[in-house]
């Protein structure tokens, strides 16, 4: 546990001082938002399904951008090789990277969400806001969904960087695998916005939580094989 936190602290400090990933993600999300706005001509008659879809597409695209960066930082000065030299199980290295990536992606999502509110939901009809009924469940789903796609994203960004195709490879590897996250997260978010009771989406929630657990376990197990010798 201490090792995971140490790696987390290292990554966070690097980001805090260099300020590379966070602003990039934020501006990128903002641009996506603008593009969606222009493309869909969203007015006040928005559909909660479409809004949820737009939110998650923005999160996933900007999130993957950040993830690609997080491992290419390690490549500079061969930092990753030194990280591997530390007498820590490889699984902990994965979990530490996962933790720092989740926190970073979540933070920028938290900054972007109010803007969504402003652009899309401000004068949407039929959406009522209450702290316990809408806001907290919504944030919960954002949290779980983010863990879902970042767990696979973190894993595969370290693989993609070592392939010939590099950054090209990451979305190719991750998008088909995170389909369950997309289906469940968008579904739950739109149900919440429509003000449906929790029973209505409890099954999706179970699927989402299982996805998170399965792939965090599987990825931390397989991480050892992934980075055996990054040399060749």
């Amino acid at each position: 546990m201490r090792n995971i936190l140490l790696i987390f602290r290292k990554d966070f400090l690097v980001e805090w001082r260099s300020k590379q990933i966070f602003p990039t993600m934020f501006v990128f999300s903002l641009l996506l938002l603008l593009v969606f706005n222009v493309a869909f001509e969203f007015r006040s008659d928005v559909d909660s399904r479409a809004v949820s879809a737009v939110i998650w597409i923005t999160f996933i695209f900007s999130g993957l951008l950040a993830l690609g960066r997080s491992f290419s930082l390690e490549k500079e000065n061969n930092a990753f090789a030194f990280l591997l030299l530390t007498p820590v199980s490889r699984s902990y290295i994965y979990l530490g990277k996962l933790l720092s990536n989740v926190v970073m992606v979540l933070l920028s999502e938290l900054f972007i969400l109010p803007l969504f509110l402003l652009f899309f939901l401000f004068d949407a009809s039929g959406v009522s806001f209450s702290l316990t009924g809408t806001v907290l469940p919504f944030l919960g789903v954002v949290f779980l969904g983010t863990i879902g796609f970042v767990s696979l994203g973190t894993f595969f960004s370290s693989m993609a960087l070592n392939t010939k195709l590099r950054d090209m490879m990451l979305p190719l590897l991750v998008f088909p695998l995170i389909i369950p996250v997309v289906i469940t997260s968008v579904g739950i978010c739109s149900s919440i916005l429509e003000g449906r009771p929790p029973d209505y989406y409890s099954f999706s929630l179970q699927v989402l939580v299982s996805f998170d657990i399965i792939f965090i376990l599987l990825c931390s197990l397989l991480f050892e094989y992934l980075i055996e010798d990054s040399g060749d």
């Binding site: 696979l152 894993f155 693989m159 070592n162 392939t163 010939k164 195709l165 090209m168 490879m169 590897l173 088909p176 695998l177 389909i179 369950p180 289906i183 469940t184 999706s204 699927v207 299982s210 996805f211 399965i214 792939f215 599987l218 990825c219 397989l222 094989y225 992934l226 055996e228 010798d229 060749d232």
Partner: peptide
């Protein structure tokens, strides 16, 4: 697109395992 021979084999093996586990979850969702 992976690169060297050993890397190609290892990466694709890892991807195949994750993909196979992913499939039932896709079906359920």
């Amino acid at each position: 697109g992976a690169g060297g021979r050993g890397k190609k084999a290892r990466y694709s093996a890892i991807f195949a395992i994750i993909a196979y586990v992913d499939l039932p979850v896709v079906y359920v969702s």
